[in-house]
C-alpha cells in the first residue's frame, strides 16, 4: 500500500488528474521556465523561495492592476454623473417605499373594526376568556404573566431569541481579538485613541455605595423574578434589575473582579440553557395542543412561590437571558470583551 502511495504522485494518471483539477496556465510556464533557466548552477532553496515569493507578489500586483482597470470606468461614472443619478434613485425609492407603506397600513386600518366598540371580538371574547379561565389554564395569578408566557409564549420566545442574537451580533462587531501573544490587538493598533484610562478607577465612594447597593439590587431582582407569577414583575423586568446590579458592581470594582464570576463561557452556557429550556417547554406545549408539560407544580395560590405551573421557571429563564444580554452589551460597549 505504502509503495503504491509513494509513487502515485508521479504516475501519468495522477498527473492527468492534477492537470484536470488545477488547470495549466501561463503561470506554470513561468515557473517551469524560471526553474529550468539557470541550468549552470543548481539554485538553492532560498533562491527558489525568493523567486516564488516574487512571482506571488507580481501576480498579486497584476491582478490588482486588472481590477483597477476594470473598475476605472465604473468608478468614474459613480463619482460624477452616477452619484447624482443614484441619489435621485434612492430618494425615489425611499419615497415609493414610504408611500406604499402608508397606503397599505391605512388600507388595513380601514378594514379593522372601530376601536372600543362593544361588538368587537377582542372586546368580549378574548378578554373574558383571559380573565375567567386564565388561572385555570395557565396557572398564573398574574394574568399578564400568564398571557406573555402561555397564551403568547411564542412571541416571548422570539423576543428572547432576538436578545440573544443581538448579543451575538454585538459580540462579533465589538469584540477585541487577541493576537498571537494574547494581547488585545486593538490596544496595539490604537494606543492613543483609547480614552478609557480617563475614567475614574477604584473610586472609594463608588465602591462603598456599590457594596451597600449591589446586594439590595440583586435581591430585589431575584424577588421580581420569583414573584412574576403572583404579582407585578416577571422575566424582563427582573432580568433588567439583575443586570443593573451586575453593571454597578462592574463599574465599581473593575473587569478583573467581575470576570471572576461572569465570564464569556458562563454567559454562553446560561443563555443556551435558558433558551433551550424555554424552547423545549414551549415546543412541547405547541406540539401537544397547548397542553403544558406536566410539571407537578400546582395552580397559582397567592403567597406560594412554588405554584402556577411552569410560569415561574419560564420567567427565570427569560430573566437570565435578559440579564446576561444587558450585562454583555455593557461590557462590550465599554471594553470590547468580558
Amino acid at each position: 500500500m505504502s509503495k503504491r502511495r509513494s509513487d502515485w504522485a508521479q504516475r501519468p494518471q495522477a498527473r492527468f488528474l492534477r492537470w484536470m483539477r488545477e488547470g495549466y496556465g501561463a503561470l506554470d510556464d513561468e515557473i517551469i521556465s524560471a526553474v529550468a533557466q539557470p541550468a549552470a548552477q543548481r539554485p538553492d532553496a532560498e533562491a527558489l523561495e525568493e523567486h516564488d515569493r516574487l512571482i506571488g507578489t507580481h501576480r498579486h500586483e497584476r491582478e490588482m492592476a486588472l481590477d483597477r482597470l476594470a473598475n476605472y470606468d465604473l468608478q468614474r461614472w459613480a463619482n460624477t454623473r452616477g452619484r447624482k443619478a443614484l441619489t435621485r434613485l434612492y430618494v425615489l425609492l425611499a419615497l415609493l417605499l414610504g408611500a406604499s407603506l402608508i397606503y397599505f397600513l391605512l388600507d388595513t386600518v380601514a378594514y379593522m373594526p372601530r376601536f372600543g366598540q362593544v361588538a368587537v371580538p377582542t372586546n368580549n371574547e378574548v378578554i373574558a376568556r383571559y380573565i375567567e379561565k386564565g388561572l385555570e389554564e395557565t396557572g398564573a395569578i398574574n394574568i399578564v404573566a400568564g398571557m406573555i408566557l402561555d397564551y403568547r409564549a411564542f412571541d416571548t420566545l422570539g423576543e428572547s431569541t432576538v436578545l440573544f442574537v443581538a448579543a451575538c451580533a454585538v459580540l462579533i462587531l465589538l469584540r477585541i481579538d487577541l493576537d498571537d501573544q494574547g494581547q488585545p490587538m486593538q490596544q496595539l493598533i490604537a494606543e492613543g485613541s483609547d480614552d478609557r484610562h480617563y475614567e475614574p478607577k477604584n473610586d472609594r465612594i463608588l465602591q462603598g455605595s456599590a457594596m451597600v447597593l449591589t446586594p439590595i439590587i440583586l435581591l430585589f431582582g431575584i424577588y421580581v423574578l420569583f414573584n412574576g407569577h403572583l404579582g407585578p414583575g416577571g422575566g424582563f423586568s427582573g432580568g433588567a434589575i439583575l443586570s443593573s446590579g451586575l453593571i454597578l458592581y462592574l463599574n465599581a470594582f473593575g473587569f478583573q473582579k467581575a470576570g471572576r464570576f461572569f465570564t464569556y463561557k458562563i454567559f454562553m452556557w446560561v443563555s443556551f440553557f435558558s433558551l433551550g429550556f424555554y424552547g423545549v417547554a414551549k415546543a412541547y406545549s405547541f406540539y401537544m395542543g397547548a397542553n403544558g408539560l406536566n410539571s407537578g407544580i400546582p395552580l397559582g395560590t397567592p403567597g406560594a412561590i412554588l405554584s402556577s405551573g411552569l410560569i415561574m421557571p419560564l420567567n427565570i429563564a427569560v430573566g437570565l437571558v435578559v440579564a446576561c444580554t444587558m450585562y454583555i452589551f455593557y461590557a462590550l460597549f465599554r471594553k470590547g470583551g468580558l
Binding site: 478607577k201 477604584n202 473593575g254 473587569f255 478583573q256
Partner: peptide, 10 residues
C-alpha cells in the same frame, strides 16, 4: 488622593 491607583482593565 488615591495613592494606589491600579489598572483594572487592560
Amino acid at each position: 488622593k488615591d495613592e494606589k491607583e491600579e489598572e483594572d482593565s487592560p
